[in-house]
Structure formats: C-alpha cells, structure tokens
Amino acid sequence: MLGTLITASAATLAAGPAAGLLGYRQLKRTAFAKRLRITAPNGIDESGFVHIGGIDQWISIRGEDRRNPVILEILGGPGASNLAFLPRTRGWEQHFTIVRWDMRGAGFTYAKTGPEGQGEMSLDQLYRDALEVTAYVRARLNVERVLLVANSFGTITGLRLARNHPDLYAAYVGTDQNILAGGRETSAYDNLLARLQAAGKKQAKAAAEVAEMGPERAAWSVHQWSQFNKLALTTDALSFDTMKTVVIRSLWFSPLHTLRGLRSYLKAMTFSEQIAPQAASVDEWAEGTHFQIPVFVFQGAGDVLTPPEPARRFVADITAPVKDFALIEDASHFAAFRHPDRFLQLMLTRVRPVLTGTWAAGNVPEQPLYAAP
C-alpha cells in the first residue's frame, strides 16, 4: 500500500548531486555492514532461498545467541521487506534470534524471478506460506515454538496464525496493528478527510477525491487504496517525517541493497498492492477473540494509518492467557522502526518475561495481564 509513496520519495532523494550523494551512500553502507557483523561464538547469521509454497523465498536468520527466543517477523506493505531496517534493529539481535522473511511479492523473493515467478498472490497463500516458513524455522533452529512479531499489513496474517496455531507460536506481538472490523472501522478515513477539509483550498482536490471514495474500503480499487495511504501519511507531519528519516533513509543506506536492488524493492511493493483490497472484509472480532497464547500490541501513539484506539479496543475484548497493550510515544506508523530502542524495551520488560516465566512453565495466571487505558 505504501509502494507509490516510497517510490516517489526515493526518486526525490536520488535527484541530488550524483557523485557526492552516491559517495556518501557508499560510506554509510560500509559502516552499516560493519555494524551488522555477528562474531559471537554462539551467534547465527545466515540467509538464502528456501523452497516455500512452490517457489524460492528469501529467509534471513540473525542473532547473537542461538539460545535466545526466536522471532518470526511477518512484514507489512504489502510487499515491504524489513531487511532494510537491519541497522536500526541491530540491538534486538542481542536478545532474540530474528527470522526475516521476504514473502512472495517482496524483496529478494520478488527480485529473483520478477512478477511472473511469484505464483498466487492472495492472503490465503501468504498464510499457507507462513506455516511452511514456521515449520522450516522450527526444524532449522530446533525450537518447539516461535514468537510471532507482525507489523502493519502483516498483522492481518499474524493474528490469524496466532489464533489458529497455538501449538506453533509462543506469543503474538503486533505493531502498526491493523483493525478493519469488516469495514466498520473508519476512523483513519474520517480523520484524513477532516485534515484535508481543514486545509481548505490547498487540499480541496484531495478532499473531494477522498470524499468520493467513501469509507467503504471494499469498494476501493487498488489505486484508491494506494492513494489513501499516500495522503494519510503525507498530510500528517509526524508520519511524513518518519517516511523521510526512517523508511527512505533505511532503504537508501541499506548495505544489503544495490541501486538495482532498490529499484526491485520498490517494484515489489507496487506489484504486491494487488493484495490490499482482499483485506477489506476481514473482521477480527468475527474471526475470533479467543487466543490460547499471550497477545501483545505495541502501537504508535500518533499512528494515523492504523490508529491506536481500534487496536486498544480489540485487545480489551479478547481473552488470552496474557494480554497487554502499550503506546509508543512520538511515533506514528512504523513505530517499532522509528523507536527501535523503545520497542526493544517493551519486548524485554513485557514479552520476554512471559516467554521465560510463568507462561513458559505452564503456570498461567488466573487473570490476564492488561495495561488499562
């Protein structure tokens, strides 16, 4: 959903003085590559293609100690690989072994064969792929269950996995948590329309366009989904700053991506936008509010794309052995990557103790933990 916006922003960045810009980029990439080296005797740093769902898909596994809990990330976008954020989240790898998977239509998986080699692009297929990736990770790292961490569009699949497969996952952590409620949740749309209308003549054309779209996402075309997200993030100062200083800079200075690789990364996001309308009918309450594993949601306090209040209400309504909700202040969408230190602190103080403490031992508290509003 963010491919159009990121492509436009990256093009603006690349329009600067070529020699100086590329030289500085190379210096930063070299420094980041050095920072990413894992030399600990019990560490792991491996990546490559694994045959998943009938096609080769890229999987990265990194961590300083194989004895740490294992995280399987479910990326957002759709089609937005999280590998570009490796330098920003380097500190996470001291405490967790992190599996980052470029699912079909994303990152290196898309780059290998292009659009013709991605196979079926659907939420159902991504769900099946995720189960295969989970099986691969459990066998490769010799763990019984992994910790699911999903962001943005990936939270749709993440919640389904957590709800349906308590035997495979130790807990669920959602950030930039999507709550669609079968089309009933319209606060992001309502707030965007209000911002555009308040801007007067400056945003009159955009306001008319959004008003014509209406709040019913099931009726939106792929282009309208993309346009909505572009407007939501560019008309909010904190969100737009995050796009420029976190997302675009992470891509531009990524030690894993050449210039050709960046072009492929952006093409993948545009290609994967076709999945977005499939989410319009998802109703998190109807799919089930009972979870047999701990559930955590850590949301950007200023998120205008996936607002925190619907996520808070959903967490309040679910039953789970342990549940918790927390806001990350001074954060919009991409909260975990804007403030990776704060997100890590939440993981260490709220999630990891649950994995290694009473829940892991099978002694589930009678009353679930919940951070009240």
Rank of each mutant, 00 (worst) to 15 (best):
L305Y: 01
G158N: 04
I248S: 08
P78K: 07
D303V: 12
V247R: 01
W101G: 03
D65P: 01
K202M: 11
A276H: 02
K112Y: 05
T109D: 00
R138W: 08
G23M: 10
R313A: 04
F298W: 02
T155G: 00
D303C: 11
R263C: 06
D330F: 06
Q345F: 05
E366I: 15
Y24E: 06
H165G: 09
E329I: 09
A232P: 06
F314E: 00
F153A: 07
F32L: 07
E366V: 15
G182H: 02
A139K: 15
T157I: 10
R145H: 13
F153E: 02
L21Q: 12
A219C: 04
T157E: 02
F253W: 12
L2H: 14
F32Q: 02
H339C: 07
G63S: 06
P78A: 10
D236Y: 08
Q94R: 15
I71M: 07
G174W: 02
I179D: 05
L180F: 05
A171C: 04
P365C: 06
R313I: 07
S281C: 04
V173P: 01
P365G: 03
R163M: 02
P310V: 04
A80W: 03
I318Q: 10
E216A: 13
G43V: 10
S221W: 05
Y136D: 05
T109K: 00
Q227D: 13
S332P: 03
D65N: 08
I275G: 01
T234A: 11
T186A: 07
A276Y: 01
L126R: 04
A372E: 15
N68R: 13
W252M: 10
Y169W: 05
G16Y: 14
L159M: 11
Y127S: 09
G174V: 10
H165M: 12
A171G: 10
L348Q: 14
G119P: 06
P215E: 09
P373K: 13
V143C: 07
T235R: 14
R249F: 07
V99E: 10
S152A: 13
R352T: 11
A360G: 15
P166W: 08
G154C: 04
P41E: 07
G174K: 04
R140Q: 13
S250V: 00
R184P: 03
L266I: 08
L123S: 04
R90K: 12
R37S: 09
P17Q: 13
K323V: 07
A84K: 01
H165N: 12
A237G: 07
F228K: 09
S226K: 13
W101D: 03
D190L: 14
Y127M: 12
Q224F: 11
R138I: 08
K323G: 04
D102A: 03
M213L: 09
E366C: 12
R217A: 05
E212S: 10
D65E: 11
F96I: 08
L36W: 07
L75K: 01
E120G: 14
V315R: 03
A361P: 02
F325A: 00
H95K: 11
F325V: 00
T356Y: 11
D167K: 14
A80C: 12
G48R: 04
K112S: 08
R313T: 10
S254Y: 03
I293D: 02
A130N: 08
A150C: 12
P277L: 12
Y110H: 09
R25P: 04
